[in-house]
């Protein structure tokens, strides 16, 4: 990684195992990782410090992922932060809704490897 600044990625994921794995992968790839295990916590963490990108699970305790996404995109201060939905829901309605609400990408967990997720995040950050 040849980046000058360490990018901060916020991982909002309630499954501790998946959370741990992605956290490890992103740290290895030179990212600063902020962790949140539910929607409310995610919201708090964003208010503390704006991350450069957010990985958002949909089925979350406390606050549903799509509701959080909607709030983020409606708020002027946070709407610029790219959000990648990382979920195992693959029904079209949900994918379309997520993208319509302003998510930059929709990743189905079972169809991607951590490697590929990091690559997607890299590309998105290069663009912004």
């Amino acid at each position: 990684m040849t980046q000058q600044k360490k990018f901060a990625v916020l991982i909002i994921e309630d499954d501790t195992f998946l959370h741990e794995l992605s956290k490890k992968k992103f740290i290895q790839q030179g990212y600063e990782v902020i962790s949140a295990f539910n929607g409310e916590e995610g919201k708090r963490k964003i208010q503390q410090k704006f991350p450069d990108i957010i990985l958002l699970d949909l089925l979350l305790p406390e606050m549903d992922g799509l509701d959080l996404l909607k709030e983020l995109k409606e708020n002027r201060a946070t709407q610029h932060i790219p959000v990648v939905i990382v979920s195992n829901y693959s029904d079209r309605e949900r994918v379309q809704k997520g993208l319509a609400l302003g998510a930059s990408d929709y990743i189905i967990k079972a169809h991607f490897t951590p490697d590929e997720i990091v690559q997607k995040v890299n590309t998105l950050l290069k663009k912004s």
């Binding site: 499954d15 195992f17 998946l18 794995l21 992605s22 992968k25 195992n88 189905i108 967990k109 079972a110 490897t113 951590p114």
Partner: peptide
């Protein structure tokens, strides 16, 4: 899929 994703990623 959720537990399988964990196995896959690991």
């Amino acid at each position: 899929r959720t537990p399988l994703s964990g196995v896959k990623w690991l």
